[in-house]
Simulated assay, not measured.
Amino acid sequence: MKPYIIFLFLVIPFFSFSQKSLASKKTLKQETKEIKEIKKFQKELNEEYLNPKETPLRGDNFTQFKKHPFFPIDLKYRVEAKFIKTENPTPFDLPTSSGKSKSYQEFGKATFELDGKSYTLTIYQSLDLMKMEKYKDHLFLPFRDATNTKETYGGGKYLDLKIPAGDSIILDFNQSYHPYCAYNAYDYNCPIVPEENKLPVEIKAGVMYQDIYHH
Rank of each mutant, 00 (worst) to 15 (best):
M1L: 07
K2E: 13
I12N: 10
P13Y: 00
F14A: 15
F17P: 00
L22Y: 13
A23S: 15
K26T: 09
T27C: 02
E31K: 15
K39L: 12
E47D: 15
L50H: 03
N51C: 07
P52M: 05
K53Q: 11
P56N: 08
R58E: 13
G59T: 02
D60F: 09
D60H: 09
F62W: 05
F65V: 08
K67W: 06
F71C: 08
P72H: 08
Y77M: 01
R78S: 11
K85N: 10
N88D: 12
P89I: 12
T90D: 11
P91T: 12
P95H: 09
G99C: 03
S101A: 09
S101V: 00
K102W: 01
K102F: 03
E106H: 11
F107M: 14
G108P: 08
T111C: 08
D115L: 02
D115K: 12
K117G: 06
K117C: 07
T120P: 03
T122G: 04
K131Y: 05
K131H: 05
M132Y: 07
M132A: 11
K136I: 05
H138Y: 14
L139I: 09
F140S: 05
L141M: 03
F143P: 00
D145M: 01
K150A: 07
K150F: 04
G154E: 06
Y158W: 06
L159M: 00
L159Y: 00
L159R: 02
D160G: 05
L161Y: 04
K162Q: 14
I163N: 08
I163S: 11
A165W: 04
A165M: 10
G166S: 15
G166R: 14
F173T: 01
P179N: 00
Y180T: 04
N184D: 08
Y186F: 02
Y188F: 12
N189A: 03
N189S: 06
N197D: 04
I203T: 03
M208L: 04
D211T: 11
